[in-house]
């Protein structure tokens, strides 16, 4: 049970990293990125291949994953600079599906739908499974803490203020003298880097990646996490991620209470519970559990 709890918390950490990445791109800069799963996959595959195929150390794999996802994010946002709202959403969703299909079909590189097994984890051989989960959990929490600190620092700085201005009105931000295009590319790259980090962490923790993991449903869960936690609020992103994992995993324990359900019915019941809880939150607190607040100005200090 403890091992399960630690593993669940580790997954919550992965979700928190994803939500923090999305919070930079969407929460702060207002760009709808439905391609989270694609950047997550890029990070996971980049680090998996770097460590398994090239035999590089895990930490190098993770750095490569972040750099790779950030570069892909910069490129994608550079190409889509003039797209707004729904159009950007469609393109990013397409991007993520393209990444998944490449992973499924370029067998020479990714081993196709069989996936890549045996991805090394830190000290996996020497620790007991329980100890390994505890270590992973601790490392993930440290990563989430670092990502929280970094994005919150950006949010409080004039950089974050410019991003929020662009989110509210791009034209007025340009007239205010802000280089809107550069900001959008930077914000997208930073967010995508965090998504890549989440992917790498996932790969090294579970030791296995396959194309099926990176379906668009994951993207939806992260959007739900951020919306429930509070879009634009850094702490809200983390809390929302833990909340979504709580519902996802918690609904597992409700299922056995209903006797006589088939496996498929049980799975459907879980989805119903997940959906209704989120609708409930949005009804009660539309701004999320933690609403976005402007950073405290230096004036009042």
């Amino acid at each position: 049970m403890l091992s399960y709890l630690l593993a669940t918390l580790t997954f919550a950490g992965v979700y928190a990293l994803l939500a923090l990445g999305l919070n930079v791109i969407w929460g702060m800069a207002g760009m709808i990125n439905l391609g989270l799963a694609g950047f997550f996959a890029l990070g996971a595959y980049a680090s998996a291949l770097a460590t398994v195929a090239l035999g590089l150390p895990i930490i190098v794999g993770i750095v490569i994953a972040i750099a790779f996802a950030a570069a892909a994010g910069a490129l994608l946002s550079r190409l889509t600079l003039n797209l707004r709202g729904d159009y950007l959403a469609i393109v990013t969703l397409g991007f993520s599906e393209v990444i998944r299909l490449i992973a499924a079909n370029e067998i020479w590189l990714t081993n196709g739908s069989d996936g890549i097994p045996g991805i090394p984890g830190p000290l996996r051989g020497t620790l007991t499974p329980l100890e390994f989960n505890a270590l992973s959990c601790a490392l993930l929490f440290a990563a989430v803490g670092l990502a929280w600190w970094m994005t919150e620092r950006l949010r409080r700085a004039p950089f974050g203020r410019a991003l929020r201005a662009i989110r509210d009105d791009e034209t007025a931000a340009a007239v205010a003298g802000k280089p809107v295009r550069r900001y959008k590319v930077q914000a997208f790259a930073i967010g995508a880097g965090l998504l890549g980090l989440a992917g790498a962490a996932y790969a090294h923790f579970t030791s296995y990646v396959a194309p099926d993991i990176f379906r668009p449903l994951l993207t939806i869960y992260i959007f739900l996490a951020l919306t429930a936690g509070g879009t634009g609020n850094t702490s809200g992103a983390v809390i929302g991620a833990f909340f979504v994992i709580l519902i996802l995993e918690g609904s597992r324990f409700i299922e056995p209470l209903f006797h006589g359900l088939s496996g498929a019915q049980g799975a459907a019941l879980r989805e119903i519970i997940i959906g209704s809880s989120l609708i409930l939150i949005m009804r009660i607190r539309p701004q999320g559990l933690l609403a976005e607040r402007p950073p405290k100005s230096l004036r009042t200090q």
Partner: peptide
Amino acid sequence: FPRLTVLETLLL
């Protein structure tokens, strides 16, 4: 910028 304060708008 509706979600910026007046001070933030000026500072921007």
